[in-house]
Every structure is written in C-alpha cells, then in structure tokens.
Design a protein around this nucleic acid. Sequence first.
DNA 1: TTGAAAGCGCTAACAG
DNA 2: CTGTTAGCGCTTTCAA
Lengths: 347, 347
Amino acid sequence: MVKDGRSKVTKAAGKPAITMDDIARLANVSKATVSRALDGNPLVKPATMERINAIVRKHGYTVNRNAQKLWKKRTNTIAVVMHIPPSSGKSISAAFLFQLLADVAQSLAIRHQDMLLCPPSAEEPEAYQDILASKKADGLIFLGQGEGSKWLEELARSQAPFVVWGTPSATRTYCSVGSDNFKGGYLVGQRFAQLKRRRILFVGNRKHVELEQRRAGMEEATRACQPKMEIGDLEIPDFSYETSYAVFKGWLAAKNALPDAIFAISDMVAVGIIAALKEAGIRIPEDVSVIGYNDTPYAAHLSPALTTIHQDTREAGSLLVEKLFQILDGARPPSVTLPTDLVIRES
Amino acid sequence: MVKDGRSKVTKAAGKPAITMDDIARLANVSKATVSRALDGNPLVKPATMERINAIVRKHGYTVNRNAQKLWKKRTNTIAVVMHIPPSSGKSISAAFLFQLLADVAQSLAIRHQDMLLCPPSAEEPEAYQDILASKKADGLIFLGQGEGSKWLEELARSQAPFVVWGTPSATRTYCSVGSDNFKGGYLVGQRFAQLKRRRILFVGNRKHVELEQRRAGMEEATRACQPKMEIGDLEIPDFSYETSYAVFKGWLAAKNALPDAIFAISDMVAVGIIAALKEAGIRIPEDVSVIGYNDTPYAAHLSPALTTIHQDTREAGSLLVEKLFQILDGARPPSVTLPTDLVIRES
DNA sequence: TTGAAAGCGCTAACAG
DNA sequence: CTGTTAGCGCTTTCAA
C-alpha cells in the first residue's frame, strides 16, 4: 500500500525544537538581537555577538528556514526539472544528463543554493508556475525536456524565472543554454566526407528539434564537401541499446543498400548498431564508420572505441546557473550556444 | 565573481503574490474556509467549495508552502545526500548511483514528497542535523557515503530520521538498506572456482567496508570450493578507467605471476584492466577471467561482454523510502539486505 | 547598541 | 457549515 505523505499529517509531534526566542532568553537579549547576530550584523556589540554565538553553538540551533523564507520571500532554492529514467529492462544511458545535473549541482552549491530535483509534470506550464507560486523555489532549470517549446513559451510569457538546456533559436523568447547541435552534426558530416563516405544513415528521431538540427548540420556539411552523398533515415522509438539493435537489425535485413557511414544520435544507440553490424559480419570502420553523440564515459573504452561528439557540461552547468541568477536579478541575459567537438576514435 | 545568494537579499521585490486572504475575499468567505476547501475538507458546503475552487483556478493560486510548513512542522521533503561527481578529466561512471537516485526519486514522487538533493558535507553529523533542525527536510537518505560509520552512528544517536544505502551490520544502530556484498563476492569466488582458476587478483580498496565484504565473500567461496586458490590484492586510489588502467599496467610490468582471474570492484575498473590486459596480449577469458561489479548499462555491450554483479536498485530505492517513512512514523524498522546476482557474460 | 512590535501566509481549535 | 482567533518562527522598521 502506498501511503500519501500528505494525508492526516497534522502538526508533527517531535520534541519542541529550540527557537530563536529560546536563544534570546538564554542570552538575555531580544529576538531581534539574536537575528542580527546570526546575520553578522556589525551593529551588534562584539561581546554580545560572541555570547549569542556560543549559546547557538552549544544548543546546535539553526534558524527555521521556513519562517525565514516566509518573511524574506526568497527561498534560496532552485528547482531542477529533469526526467530521471527509473530502472527498466532496457539499457539506456542517462550518463550525459547526469553529468549535466552534476555540473549544475556544483554551480548551485557554490552559490549556496539548495537544489530541488523535480520530475517533469505534464507538458503544461501550470505545474511549474506552481513551484514558484508556492515558493518552493525561486527559479527553475529545465534539463532534457525534449523541448516542448510551446509550453515553455507560455511559461516565459508568465514572467517565470527559468532557463533551459537546449539549443537556442531566434523564435524562442526564453533563455537557453545549449550546445551547437548543428555544428555537432556538421562535424560528423565533414568527417564522413573526409573519409570519402557516400551513403550516410542517420539513426534517431527527426521530430526532436535538437536531433533534426544535428541532421541538418550533417547534411549541410556533406553538401559543402561532397555533394554526391546520399542521406537516409532510420527512426527509432527510444534510444535504448535493445531498440536500436533490433530496429537496425530489421532494417539491415530488409534493405539492401548498406550505408558506409552511420550517425547515431547517442552513444548507446551507436553501440546497438555496432553490435548488429558486427553480427552481420560488417567491419567497422572499414565497411562503415559509426559516429555517436555525447561522449559517454564508456565511449572511449569500447571496441572499436567510439568516435563521438563531445559537449562541455561543466561550462553548460555553470552558465545555466549564472543566467538564471541574472534573470532573478531582473536582467534578460541572452541565450548561449556552446561549441561541440568531434572526438575521433576508432569507429 | 561568484555571488552569494544569501547576501543582501532582503524581502524580494516581485509582484505582491496572491494570498489565501485574497481568495477568501473574492469568494466572500473567511480564510479558514478557503483553507478547508483546499484541503478537501468535507465539512465545506459543496457549492462553497466549487466557488472557491473556481476562483483558485482562475487566479492560479497555490498555497505558500513555507507558511504551511512553518505551521505544520512538516515539510514533505526528503533530503537525499549524495556525492554527484562533477566533470573531471577521468572516466568514472556514476551510473549505478544515478540509477539508485532515479529509483529513490521515483518512490518519493509516488509519496508526493519533494526531493532536496544535497552534496555531502564534511564527515560530521552537524551538517545533517542542521538540515533537519532548519526544517528543510523531514528526513535524510544517504546514498554512497563510503560508510563513514562513526558519524552516522552519532547521527543515529541524535534521533535523526534517516536511512542509508549500505550493507547492514550488527554493530550498526541505524537502518540501512544494502545489497549483499558478501554474497556478491561469494558468487564471484564460486564462479572462479567453477572455472578452475587458481590465482585471483582483487582490484579495489579494502578499506571500504563494502568492498572488503565482497572480498571476504570471494575468499570464503574459494575456501569452500577450491582451497588451493591464491588471492592477491591490488589497491587503486580511485575507481576511474585511467587510474585502473595505469595502476594495473604498472603492476603487470612489475610482478611476474599473472593471475588467471580478476575481481574488479566496479565495471569501469574492470574495463581499465581489460584494456591493459588486451594491450599485453593476454586473452580474456582464456588466460584470465574478469568480473566487474554493478552491471552498468554498458557492461553487457562491451567486448568481451562483462561478467558482473547485479543489484536491484528499483527495490533498493523503494525500500529506502519505505523504511524512512516507517521511521518518520515512529517505528524502528530493521535493516535489509537485498540479494545480488551474478550475470555471466563473456569475460 | 538594543528592544518592542508588526507582520510574512497559513492552519486549527473553538465557537457559533 | 463557517468565522474568529491565536499563533507557527523569523525579520525589520522604528524608537529608545
């Protein structure tokens, strides 16, 4: 049985918790003075301050943040909205997103901000407006939202302070920090041209804006370098190893024209494809080159070591946080696009 | 320049935010009635309730959680303490921990609990007591704390409601949920015995309790099955690919007795070792079998596919949350040890 | 340099 | 069924 934490919870019992009033009484001063002392307010006489601090330490007292937040109307908390895929039978690697989360966490910690990690709600702005309206957090950071765009625009119109991880575009009115998907794709196309490849297969899902951008970049590069290249598409419903492997294997069985270059939208997808390729006796990279995306920790250590596109999550995390605070300070910072790099390895 | 979010932030400006009083006025009832209505209190006349709800929806009103928490002394928030390794030059895979985090998040979401993700502080209980005392969260979940033990014991003594991911032991007074490291190691030892291996190398760090348990399990199994086996140890300072590779390579160069079985404390470590092994022309698994730990998403898709130990994070996450709520309800639930499984693949 | 007082927005007795 | 009232624990004018 699942119990709802909200049900029947009245004033929680617990020991009566020491308050600022108690400290004040013990120090023979008023609450106001204690408050000032804790704030490091220089108006407080050093001796008094010392006495108060001693008592505070002795009793392990800490201000009740809820009372503080209530009054200050500031929570010093940022909500990070991200879908953390729970265990499933499939091999999906959320390594990239987690890396981004880690780097965002790091930047928030530096600013002494608490981080509320929230799963995404339905694709409508209300849920997020509620997080702000209910004062759970001062601002929002969206990671990996597949870029619904429409509801984000609506959220932006409501003046909600937020930033999103995703490629900026001229039509977007909110601030986003993203890596250059077009360039990522371009580098891939260029590499394929260099390798004199002729028939490329793009494996992914063109409905995701970001992914379509990568494909566009690749197409552009091929057009520039090697106009004769053909580009085919293979759509996969999810980005797990299992699905990629199965779908690609099916495609291999059906189609005859084997590509000599494959651009997979994630490293795990690339690994699935490589497995199917190997199984069919096709050599990598002799017969077909494969390039992945994200530079997952394992990518370098697979065999063949995966050629892939790297994004700087460290910088991304730091910028996301920085921009959000600029917004909270009333500014309207521009979006940024971070560079992407091709990491050439064996595949 | 890093700005401290705490500095100089007085009452934040912002539009005056709609309060329950406003709703009450608009609905021509008292605040109390609005409060009851929002609570779904059946005492409220349906018509009144409907009217209130309409107004609430129209204005996108949500209760101020801080005011609510202040009064209820319950935050409906759980702090998850976990070290999220930020980007570094090294390939470390935090995949296992993230999976656990994901599954904990899932279980918390089901209970409508908010999740505060906190980096670990220094190894002392005060920081965590403060999280509770300041009413940022009702309870704590520790993930991957390397098991300092001493300060956790101290925290337990202070009656703090928390649970930890880690192997339970009779000497621990707090509640923990862990997987059976001893069994994990035992399965490895058994497997090596089955394969008629004679010289095992344990690569890891025996100072971590959990890792020592794995090693003990392995030793026990070998003693039972194959008393003549030798067990050697190789300590590595961190569990990155780079370090494992380098340290193992050095060891290989120095030592002469090549083991015929290696037990690595994580999949990434196993991968580093395998790379060094391959480089030295040693065949896997013919010359030496390698077994990893954690069953990372990529493990199945490496070549050779990694034989490893699997832990059920789904169940772990759910139990951690369940136990914590039992504790919050005043119970003293026993610790649990979850089974571990050997996933035999190619290595 | 300190204290008194007035709330921040909400909840829950207790009366009606 | 609904309103009145008294806070939850803290911050900050305003006065002293």
